[in-house]
């Protein structure tokens, strides 16, 4: 191939990359932009800059439905994050530190939730909880409200697939841990609990923080599974979806700006932690 055509190809490749990133960014930039347009609809023409849709009487902070959704999402995501980190850490120790018959099958089953479509996971948990409720009522004659669609089912449904993610991230970190350090601590008379809390868990901290952030965001933004299990208290994504179907308003753009900012900050923290983690690893080698 001639020198020139190599150059032309490289140029085309570069141009393609520019277009690609424009394609990625444009929808988000426009959503953000129209949160500041002084017009009742998120559309052109531009009528001047305003913060009305954030701070005004009809702004996002005055919208009770959206604020309630935000609170629900926040509490569900916190609970899901806590559970996924706890069980993910236990799973990591199980798979990295123990050998037992059936480990391969169990590992495969642990990965399975990732290949079940979210909608199917949602409806199957819905059916099963219905069966359980009916069963309990039939055998014991007690009516149970707890397993009806609602926040408990939403939390469990999200937990069901996000735990796979935290397990994978925490396992990967645990695998890199130098067990000689633990052995040394045991030789010096440290107890299991002491070694765990002062040595192993601190080593896992970067993975716990970044997988915790991933779990929080996955829960906060989940729609498919949540949509099938939601009761009367709706998380923000469900509220937003309903509003969006009724028609676009700049308030929705304002919420979107807040969501973009919040996830940007969380991702920045996660990247920072991973970088520190990486640098520490390089130094310890």
């Amino acid at each position: 191939m001639s020198q020139r055509s190599v150059k032309v190809l490289a140029g085309i490749h570069k141009l393609y990359i520019v277009f690609f990133f424009a394609y990625l960014a444009i929808p988000l930039i426009l959503v953000a932009l129209f949160a500041f347009n002084d017009a009742p609809y998120p559309a052109l023409p531009w009528r001047g800059f305003t913060l009305e849709w954030f701070l005004g009487n009809k702004g996002v902070f005055q919208d009770e439905r959206l604020m309630d959704g935000l609170k629900v999402s926040f509490s569900v995501a916190s609970m899901v994050t806590f559970l996924c980190l706890l069980i993910g850490t236990l799973n990591a120790f199980l798979f990295e530190r123990r050998s037992f018959p059936g480990k391969g099958i169990l590992y495969f089953l642990m990965l399975a939730p990732l290949v079940v479509p979210g909608v199917i996971l949602g409806v199957s948990i819905l059916i099963f909880s219905h069966t359980l409720t009916n069963g309990i009522e039939g055998f014991l004659g007690i009516e149970t409200e707890i397993l009806r669609p609602g926040l408990l089912l939403v939390t469990l449904g999200q937990f069901a697939f996000i735990t796979t993610v935290t397990t994978l991230v925490i396992s990967a970190r645990l695998r890199k841990f130098d067990r000689m350090q633990e052995e040394a601590a045991f030789d010096l008379g440290a107890s299991h609990l002491h070694v765990l809390t002062t040595l192993t868990l601190p080593y896992l901290k970067p993975a716990l923080i970044s997988s915790g952030i991933v779990a929080f965001l996955m829960s906060f933004e989940n729609f498919n599974t949540t949509f099938m299990l939601v009761g009367s208290d709706a998380p923000l994504t469900i509220t937003l979806f309903d509003s969006l179907r009724q028609g676009a308003t700049p308030v929705l753009n304002a919420v979107s700006v807040l969501l973009i900012l919040a996830s940007g900050v969380l991702v920045a923290i996660s990247l920072f932690v991973q970088k520190v983690d990486y640098i520490l690893d390089e130094h310890s080698k």
Partner: peptide, 17 residues
């Protein structure tokens, strides 16, 4: 980065366009 923003918001962007 764009994928850390809710799928709902991304689609909303396309709807506006």
């Amino acid at each position: 980065l764009p994928f850390w923003v809710s799928e709902l918001v991304r689609n909303y962007g396309w709807m506006i366009i």
